[in-house]
Computed example of a mutant assay.
Amino acid sequence: MTSAPEKTSLDAVGADVLRVAREQVLERGEGLAEAQLLEVLRLGDEHLTDLLALAHDVRMRWCGPEVEVEGIISLKTGGCPEDCHFCSQSGRFPTPVRSAWLDIPGLVKAARQTAETGATEFCIVAAVRGPDKRLLTQVREGVKAIRADGNDIQIACSLGMLTQEQVDDLVDMGVHRYNHNLETARSHFPNVVTTHTWEERWETLRMIREAGMEVCCGGIIGMGETVEQRAEFAAQLAELNPDECTMNFLIPQPGTPYEHYEIVEGKDALRTVAAFRLAMPRPLIRFSGGRELTFGDLGTKQGMLGGINAIIVGNYLTNLGRSADQDLEMLKDLKMPVKALSDSL
């Protein structure tokens, strides 16, 4: 049991952590370093409200009030040769997901429905190590068909690891943003994936950046990483300086090595959201998979007021999400304007 003097001392330490963060991140726009992020992640629950308020202030100052809304669609589902231990689309695990391809009319319809929600971003995803010729042809035809449908929504892709030639092809297609998650801290990655390396993912991100596409990169919280590795991961993402960071929370998938992992506790998840914002004052930080399970409705609102400024609406790749109407109503209640397509082009 903590004594009164000890509690007073801990309160003072926590207040000092927040004071330094306010001066460094809010006032100067400089993200916290790894050691500072660890201090944030170790703050007691009594500091959580103030931490979330600071992260929200940072978001408002350096990003503004708008929220970017995105829909995603799986062009090629399941049958992936990689062994990412969290993923139900890996062909190495006995999961219920089976390999399937979406046709071009289905892709056009999904893009149209996404645009009708008010979203400005449509991401085409494939469960692959990297795209082969067939997949890239399908993406090219899909992008053309979406444009022929009169849809001006911005198109992003997430197709695994790329070669330079493939990067150039995507630029030529008009893909403006590419998602490729580092997934977790470099030190923890070998525990999560063994069929490729963290460095291979980093190399794809480097080529994307140099080609002029926007970089979308984040990962999944709750895969057995330590609090120190969460701080490490946030600092590594900040070094990458992505245009967008996706924040996923583990959904234990049946048949995967992580099927019995526990859900991240809500307060720890909120602390992590705030820490990522204090590491990266300016990028989009997007609520992605697992937020419904980890937070519920109330916690999702808390996260939106704790540094988040982008969300995926509708369903995810192999999991159901909230309806777009529910999320748009939530943003309306929070008086958070949805970023307009005309402002993003």
Rank of each mutant, 00 (worst) to 15 (best):
V264A: 03
L334G: 06
Y261A: 12
A274C: 06
L278V: 07
F287L: 14
P281Y: 03
A279W: 13
M304I: 10
R322L: 15
F295A: 04
A274S: 06
T272E: 09
I308R: 11
G266R: 09
G321V: 01
A279M: 13
E292W: 08
A310Y: 09
N315H: 04
L278R: 02
A275T: 04
M336G: 11
A310G: 10
G321S: 01
P257Q: 09
L293R: 12
T318Q: 00
G303Q: 01
L331S: 12
L320A: 14
K332N: 14
A340D: 14
T294S: 10
E259L: 03
L284E: 15
E292H: 07
L270R: 01
L320H: 15
E259I: 02
S323T: 15
E262C: 11
F287K: 07
T272N: 05
V338T: 11
I263C: 09
Y316I: 02
L284Y: 14
K267H: 13
D297E: 15
P281A: 05
E292P: 06
Y258H: 12
N315S: 10
G289R: 06
L317Y: 02
R271T: 07
I308H: 05
G321L: 01
L293G: 03
L320I: 06
P257D: 12
G314E: 00
Q302S: 03
T300E: 13
H260W: 06
L331D: 07
E265V: 13
R291V: 11
I263N: 14
G321T: 01
G266M: 08
